[in-house]
Design a protein around this nucleic acid. Structure first.
Lengths: 337, 337
DNA sequence: CTGAAAGCGCTAACAC
DNA sequence: GTGTTAGCGCTTTCAG
């Protein structure tokens, strides 16, 4: 009744067929120089004939290395797929890894059993992991860093622990720059829709916003806390408008939320940018398709994904790398400011 | 210089600390009944104290099973993330697996080295795989079926090979139903935008369209072949309009393409559904957010993902399951027909 | 119920 | 260059 899975040929079988020892086969498989051309040919032919593929479990057990890395997204599947930022980072990492010997395994942390992911990571399945978007609550991952090379992706919680490798943009500077665009427009009643305050990026962007204002002798007109979704942006903005707040500028911590906020303002009959000058962060589909298109700070998430992978692999290989990698950002001027 | 990765505690260490043999520890870890409660407690405590996690490679080598399955998407990363269908399937599978002992490993097949994915699959990394969206060109996966339990997801190429397990909707029936909605509106000049013709789902939907027409004594007004993206839908529709074709009905093989087609028609000043009655397949964000909202055939991709996972696991466990699972669909009437 | 011992398939010294 | 020989960490008969 049980699936008769075809038995994969073993290295030993290849050795017999090629008339050499298993060690030699292993050498050929692993591209060692020191094998006579003829032995090499014999082995290669045997491999081809048997359609041999080395067993990873055995290999990784023997050499204590798996040649696989995980990309952990501590976020439920729905949110993951809704956010273009994740998609881009994955894309960048996947692309970078395609040219290496490493496999990328995408781990969407399950809500039901968070320990499962951790166990997987510690169970020797991967040589290291990239961790995206971790809330401050996710101490588990920070702790994991002692057992496995980890590289955190942007939007991480700021931390003073050491041995934490992070690839991120300078969120404070980005927010400052975006806010200054509004200030330079002559606006003086500026509000912000901030991200969840248990996330480093959100905190930093709020800080940048406040700093920019302070440097111009201004106070925030309002500070709203949201959760990075378009809906929440819409919702909070509606509330703000209904509350009768009188603002002429708005900095939103992410394009997704800004997209929602714009809809709310349009619904209330506000003209952008005449009535309210708005800027944000992230140059994704939301920023480009918003009406009007959003003036924003572009990160380069694909590049970030690639850099994260690169750094992780260097760490796995024992090369020393800087703990912090700050990615460049770019101010994109469009119609919303 | 090399990363001093903390050595994970081994089963042997746990055994020593608990004062039992490795076999007993193994039994406890694997939930065997036949262990004295006191021994059990001792082991469990040792495990906790040492923070022990079993090494997967060793385990899978010993028992010839990995407790991991792969979800293979033979599609580049960009396309994968752009299509809500994939997201839903993954979500469904992930959710189903969360309650099992299995891990889901997402494999985006790399363009640069297609053999890499196949090698990974054959290298004993997973006990089986779910394969989505395979073009007819992807013979490699069908062949893999002999070596590893595979379950194919909707939109697969129709095939008469046996031992191919598929979870899909009845694409012919779905297309027929959607087309009949248009016919019932009294329209007689009906065109279709079909999907790529190297994909089973596209073929079947075109067949269904043609059949429905034939049964009402009609001929297709035009048959356009597209690639499932909104842009191509837009583009082809524009061409059709420019060509001066006179149609009053349109069946589009996917909501994404329909979304694009609708934009093109709006741009040309056509009123939907007054001028052209349109229906499609897929009830995703594109269908719901289109202007006007699309009358469509809803699949249930999350459920499909879950069913695929369920069937795969049954196969892995040697249970017998039907080769074909046809999922229900549902006609959603909105404003576009 | 528990322990001893024999591998799972591969790699990595170490000799030859 | 190549073969021999130990294991990698775990499961699994097989005795007891």
């Amino acid at each position: 009744m049980s699936e008769a899975r075809k038995q994969q040929p073993t290295l030993e079988l290849v050795a017999e067929r090629a008339g050499v020892s298993r060690a030699t086969v292993s050498r050929v498989v692993n591209g060692s120089e020191k094998v006579k051309p003829e032995a090499m040919r014999a082995v290669e032919q045997a491999i081809r004939e048997l359609n041999y593929v080395p067993n990873r479990a055995a290999r990784s057990l023997a050499q204590g290395r798996t040649n696989a890395i995980a990309l952990v997204v501590p976020e439920n599947t729905a949110k993951f797929f809704a956010d273009p930022y994740f998609a881009k980072v994955v894309q960048g990492a996947a692309q970078y890894l395609a040219d290496t010997e490493f496999m990328l395994s995408l781990l969407l942390s399950t809500e039901s059993d968070p320990g499962k992911t951790t166990r997987y990571l510690r169970g020797g399945n991967v040589d290291g992991a990239l961790v995206l978007s971790h809330h401050s609550a996710d101490r588990s991952y920070a702790d994991l860093g002692g057992q496995l090379p980890l590289v955190f992706g942007g939007r991480t919680m700021s931390t003073d622990q050491n041995e934490i490798y992070v690839v991120d943009i300078d969120n404070i500077a980005a927010a400052k720059q975006a806010t200054n665009v509004i200030i330079d427009r002559g606006r003086r009643h500026i509000a912000t829709i901030a991200g969840p305050q248990d996330m480093g990026a959100s905190l930093d962007r709020l800080t940048g916003f406040t700093q920019a204002l302070a440097e111009s002798g201004l106070e925030p007109a309002a500070v709203l806390e949201s959760d990075f979704t378009p809906d929440s942006g819409h919702h909070l903005m509606s509330q703000l408008i209904e509350s009768g707040a009188d603002i002429d500028g708005l900095f939103v911590a992410s394009a997704q939320m800004a997209f929602g906020a714009l809809q709310a303002m349009a619904g209330a009959g506000l003209n952008i940018p005449q009535d309210v000058s708005v800027t944000t962060v992230d140059d994704d589909a939301f920023a480009r398709n918003a009406v009007p298109p959003l003036t924003t700070i572009a990160q380069h998430p694909e590049r970030q994904g690639a850099v994260m992978a690169e750094i992780l692999i260097k760490r796995i290989n024992g090369e020393s790398v800087p703990e912090w990698s700050i990615m460049d950002t770019e101010l994109i001027l469009r119609a919303s400011h």
